[in-house]
Computed example of a mutant assay.
Amino acid sequence: MSQFECPVVRVHIEPHPNADAIEIARVGDFQSIVKKGQFKDGDLAVYLPEASLLPEWMLKELGMWDDLNAKGKLHGKDGNRIKAIKLRGVLSQGITFPVELRGTVSVVHRPATPDHGGDAVVAEGSDVAEFLGVTKYEPIVPANMAGKALGANLDITHKYDFENIKKHPNLFEPGDDVVITEKIHGTLLQVSVVPSSMADERFFGGRVVITSKGLGGRGIILDHNDEGNVYAQAVKKHKILEEALRVLGPLADARDLPMVLFGEVFGAGIQDLSYGAQLDFRAFDISIGVRDAAVFVPHYDFEHLCDSMRVNRVPQIYVGPFDREILLECTDGKTTLAGGHIREGVVVKSRNEDRHPRYGRKIAKSISEAYLLRKNATEFQ
């Protein structure tokens, strides 16, 4: 499960191939450009990831404050949002913030205020986002992705997300049996089919509900009859509610647990990458159960269930033993769908739903450099 955090990490310093005054600080497989000599190899630092919104005091501390315009020098209307950039030909994702060593104690410092102390003692792995006042950027969702709420139920919606493989580079072992699929830049749709024991007259057929990624994470269900939102439009166009009830309904009853189909709604007007003019949907996951107790069906069963529902799946790019070089080759390039534009990236997951002893489900995203650096980007969920 993906979560926003600003962790205290140990950085590994490498020379910049095209500059003398800056260096590369590696955090996992992420790269952050730093001033030469600012960090030594093995130092502790706070990693501020992409999409972080930095407070004014930190922007000033980092020399990223514009006094004339009273705003930051980063991205967004307030100049306080971290985005990926390229510096002298090297991709930089995130910012590294210093951790001070005072004797044998590691400390993160921020200016003291009447409401806030000035220092925090930290250790490797500490999350200091709240202490620093760093939050995650959440774009304003357009009206056609908001929709009318039908109610709330945490038992039949999910908080669905997973990490970038750069954060957990050892998630997969060489040779692991994996499938790599294209990551489509759209908006996530959840279609939940509940068992008869949880039937509700407000649901489609008494048993099927829809929601988005952001709303589903909060347990909010969308009205499937509200055709002003793209999720209701997509399920109607592709007859997803009827097919999900027909195929997944008996399985939900057999287990007396909800089953959830996850997929991407995409097309013109959804995000900045259009994939052609038509509203479309592609499935990428199916789960059984409630929230953290849910399990995901192995890829073969996922394919079979999608075929039974006559639901298209996300494009499959590679199936076979895991190899980091193959993953990187698949990550970049053009979309395999309509539009001919850049590929957002790919998703790699275990075909048999194997689990990592530390990180859990073996699934991760790998994002293309062209996608990270594109102009006029949207990230609605």
Score class of each variant (00 low, 15 high):
1 M>W: 12
2 S>I: 03
10 R>Q: 11
18 N>H: 13
20 D>T: 14
22 I>E: 07
24 I>F: 08
24 I>Y: 02
31 Q>H: 15
34 V>D: 08
34 V>I: 12
35 K>Q: 15
36 K>P: 01
37 G>P: 09
42 G>N: 15
45 A>V: 09
45 A>K: 08
46 V>P: 03
49 P>Y: 03
50 E>N: 06
55 P>F: 11
60 K>E: 11
60 K>Y: 12
61 E>D: 14
68 L>P: 08
74 L>C: 07
77 K>Y: 04
80 N>A: 14
81 R>L: 07
82 I>A: 04
84 A>P: 08
85 I>G: 03
91 L>I: 08
101 L>F: 10
103 G>H: 10
104 T>Y: 10
105 V>F: 03
110 R>L: 13
114 P>Q: 07
119 D>M: 09
120 A>K: 06
125 G>Q: 15
126 S>Q: 09
127 D>V: 04
129 A>Y: 05
130 E>N: 15
131 F>C: 15
132 L>E: 00
133 G>L: 12
136 K>T: 13
137 Y>W: 07
141 V>R: 15
143 A>T: 10
143 A>V: 13
144 N>Y: 14
144 N>L: 10
147 G>D: 06
147 G>F: 02
148 K>Q: 11
148 K>S: 13
150 L>C: 08
150 L>Y: 06
155 D>L: 12
156 I>G: 01
156 I>R: 00
157 T>E: 13
161 D>H: 12
162 F>N: 02
163 E>N: 10
164 N>G: 03
164 N>Y: 03
165 I>K: 02
166 K>A: 05
167 K>C: 01
173 E>P: 07
177 D>C: 05
179 V>I: 01
185 H>P: 04
185 H>E: 12
186 G>W: 02
188 L>Q: 11
189 L>C: 09
193 V>R: 00
193 V>W: 00
198 M>G: 04
200 D>C: 09
201 E>T: 11
202 R>M: 06
203 F>Q: 00
215 L>Q: 12
215 L>Y: 04
225 N>P: 05
226 D>H: 02
232 A>G: 06
233 Q>D: 01
233 Q>C: 02
236 K>Q: 15
246 R>S: 05
247 V>C: 01
248 L>P: 03
250 P>S: 01
260 V>T: 15
260 V>P: 01
261 L>V: 00
263 G>S: 07
272 D>Y: 08
284 F>I: 03
286 I>F: 00
288 I>M: 06
289 G>N: 05
291 R>F: 01
292 D>T: 04
298 P>R: 01
302 F>V: 02
305 L>N: 10
308 S>A: 14
309 M>Y: 00
310 R>P: 11
312 N>L: 14
315 P>N: 08
321 P>G: 11
322 F>K: 00
326 I>T: 12
327 L>P: 07
327 L>M: 15
333 G>Q: 05
334 K>S: 14
334 K>H: 13
335 T>C: 10
336 T>S: 13
337 L>R: 10
339 G>C: 13
339 G>A: 10
342 I>N: 10
345 G>R: 12
348 V>Q: 06
348 V>Y: 08
351 R>Q: 13
352 N>Q: 15
354 D>I: 03
358 R>I: 10
359 Y>Q: 14
362 K>V: 04
366 S>M: 14
368 S>P: 04
